[in-house]
Nucleic acid binder design. Structure first.
Lengths: 251, 251
DNA sequence: TGACGCAAATTCCTATACAATATACGAAAT
DNA sequence: ATTTCGTATATTGTATAGGAATTTGCGTCA
């Protein structure tokens, strides 16, 4: 026992974020640090293509290599990280075709969710969706853009959760991490315009009317517009969001 | 070093399957054994609720705990395995609500894929889909049920891959592992009947016609019928497939 | 029969070691 | 000066040992 360091667990402290997140729960360590590292990637605190050195992360969170490598493995399955043999974990590069693919998947998942909500019309979910819709209108009218964005995310998530399908919800959550990462990278936000408002109206109408195909179509048309905006702002040199730009292809 | 066992890697031999799968590639060990263990679970060689003892699997594949635990972590993200602290890896239990959810997700992913194929009409994919469709008709006419099942799986996979969206394809692949596991558990197979044939016709027609909404609807109606069959055969005591039955709820 | 408690087994994590590979750096050649 | 090459260093992949925490099994006792 000549170890110079004591073996006890240190509190997990993120050097990168500065936040002190003392860990007291008894859940496995990798489950505790996973959300932190994932969040750092989605927020671009680790940039695309950047390497994640094991030892640095071990020190940052005060854990050994074993649970840390667990986290990196999980992040690889989620696609946020790429594990290259003998190089290690690299933040998955951003590129336009992949992003387009993810947006399309997101749209598809929200469409089938909307269809299901319109079909089942679960009262609690409908109520929640209508509440968020109204709050969004209010925020838009008052020019509260930040609040609007948050509500908009909640609105879409509420539709997905409202379908009651945890499998679809999990898929949606995962793909949303990718989309959020790209939008954060380019400082892109949901447009706050007349067209979006009309689309939201149409979606809510179809859900209340119990019109599955109409709900799916309304969601599809809404997201088609969103996708165009995201790809415009993320793939091309941003007008005001700095000079960030992602590669056009990975092939 | 007083280790009584030699440290060199043994060839990976599956005791459970009896198949000798010598591993020579230089890709990481966990990538090599992952497909084997996953396959064993999908084929119910490890039954639902059964524990996967680490040491036993280590010996089976001739690897140490480190890469084996990597595999179990990945399988947990995929949902085929549940990792319980201090108990370890357990094959995820089967239950009707979860299965219904997965079938619904599968249907949704195939719908949006069909929509995309009808929209883009990629020549290679269309050709492949038509080829498989014809081969299925042929197999059905000749009563080649096993061949029919294989072709049917390929048909659905071809539609998903034809959409050209790798993200959706990956989601579909993952959810299909779950569906296959349940069907294998209950010896359930795609019905080979008139209704399914008509649905397949309608799907191919819509794809060739370039009718996205029609393709989605045809796929939806087809899968609605499949889902009813699967749930009937899997959730209830099987008529001829033995006396297997899965729990009705996990809650 | 049922409840309790101890012992054994298993897992989670730490720590360490070594092999395989990548990266960095400097020397040699052009 | 630039490029090429080879060596030294750093990092990762895997193996392994051991302690802490927890579950599981078994035996005892009421």
């Amino acid at each position: 026992m000549a170890g110079k360091e004591r073996a006890g667990r240190q509190p997990a402290i993120s050097r990168r974020t500065g936040s002190r997140t003392r860990i007291v729960s008894k859940e496995p360590i990798h489950e505790q640090i996973l959300p932190h590292i994932r969040r750092d990637i989605v927020l671009n605190r680790w940039a695309p293509d950047e390497r994640l050195p094991e030892m640095e992360l071990c020190e940052e969170f005060g854990v050994s290599r074993t649970p840390l490598r667990d986290v990196l493995k999980i992040l690889e399955v989620e696609g946020l990280v790429t594990l290259v043999p003998h190089i290690g974990a690299v933040v998955t590069p951003l590129n336009t075709p992949d992003l387009a693919e993810k947006l399309e998947a997101m749209s598809g998942l929200e469409q089938i969710s909307a269809m299901k909500v319109a079909e089942l019309q679960p009262p609690a979910a409908l109520k929640q969706i209508k509440r968020l819709h109204k709050a969004m209108e209010e925020a838009a009218k008052n020019g509260q853009t930040t609040k609007y964005y948050a509500l908009n995310d909640e609105f879409h998530r509420a539709v997905v959760l409202g379908s009651g399908n945890a499998t679809v919800a999990k898929m949606h959550e995962t793909v949303m991490w990718h989309v959020s990462r790209a939008r954060n990278y380019a400082n892109e936000r949901e447009p706050l315009n007349q067209s979006a408002a009309e689309h939201h109206d149409a979606i809510v109408d179809a859900l209340e009317r119990g019109d599955p195909e109409g709900a799916a179509r309304a969601m599809r048309e809404h997201l088609a517009e969103v996708i165009v905006n995201v790809l415009e702002r993320v793939a091309r040199p941003a007008a005001r969001g700095g000079d960030r730009e992602i590669k056009d292809s990975a092939a």
